[in-house]
C-alpha cells in the first residue's frame, strides 16, 4: 500500500509538471492518427503567433514521426500493427518556446544520429545550408529518407540542437531532443 501511495504521489508530481507552462504534451503511442490530431492542435493552440506556429509545425513534422519509427518501446495494437511509444512536449517561457521529444532507442543505432547532432551544432547558418544541400543531393532511394530532417530543424529553430542520451541498459538508451525557438 505504501508503494502505491508513493507511486500515486509520483503520478501527481509528473502530472503537475505536464501542466506547467505546457501548451501541448503527449505521452503514449504515436501513429499517423495521433500525429494528425497533434498537428491540428499545434496549429490552433499557437494561432495567436503565426511565426512560431509555422516553425513549431515544421519541427514537429520532422521529429514526431521518428518516434513512431525508432522507439524501441511499442504498443501492440492487437491487429498486427505496432506503434512506437514516446513523449512530446511543447512549452512556453517568457522569451522562447521549447519543443522536445523523447523515446527509448537502440544505443547502437542512435550513434549516427548523435554524431549528426554534434556536426550540426558545430556549423554556422551558411555551413548548415551547405550541409543540407550536400545531403539533399545524395542519391535517392531511402524511403522518405535523406536525413535532412535534423539539419532542417536546426535551420528552422535557428538554435543549436539540445540533445541527450541517457543509458538505460547496455542496449537501450533514452534519447531526448529539445529545441528552443526564440520569440
Amino acid at each position: 500500500m505504501e508503494k502505491n501511495k508513493e507511486k500515486a504521489k509520483v503520478l501527481y508530481d509528473m502530472y503537475s509538471f505536464a501542466s506547467q507552462n505546457t501548451i501541448i504534451s503527449y505521452t503514449g503511442p504515436f501513429d499517423s492518427q495521433v500525429l494528425a490530431v497533434l498537428a491540428a492542435n499545434i496549429e490552433y493552440s499557437l494561432s495567436k503567433n503565426p511565426r512560431i506556429r509555422k516553425k513549431i509545425f515544421k519541427i514537429f513534422i520532422e521529429l514526431a514521426q521518428n518516434i513512431s519509427y525508432y522507439s524501441l518501446e511499442k504498443l501492440d495494437a492487437g491487429d498486427g500493427n505496432e506503434f512506437g511509444i514516446g513523449i512530446l512536449i511543447i512549452r512556453e517561457f517568457d522569451n522562447h518556446f521549447t519543443f522536445a521529444t523523447g523515446n527509448i532507442v537502440d544505443s547502437k543505432k542512435i550513434s549516427p544520429v548523435i554524431h549528426k547532432c554534434e556536426t550540426i551544432n558545430l556549423l554556422d547558418r551558411d555551413s548548415l545550408r551547405q550541409y543540407k544541400r550536400k545531403l539533399r543531393n545524395l542519391p535517392p532511394g531511402i524511403k522518405g529518407g535523406g536525413n535532412i530532417g535534423l539539419v532542417q530543424v536546426a535551420l528552422t529553430a535557428n538554435n543549436p540542437l539540445d540533445y541527450k542520451l541517457i543509458p538505460l541498459s547496455e542496449e537501450q538508451s533514452f534519447y531526448i531532443i529539445n529545441i528552443k525557438i526564440d520569440k
Binding site: 509555422k54 509545425f57 515544421k58 513534422i61 539533399r136 543531393n137 522518405g144 529518407g145 535523406g146 539539419v151
Partner: peptide
Amino acid sequence: TYFNTSSSKCIID
C-alpha cells in the same frame, strides 16, 4: 506554403 524535407528532396530531383 509548406513542404517537409523528404518532399524537398523530390523537388530537387
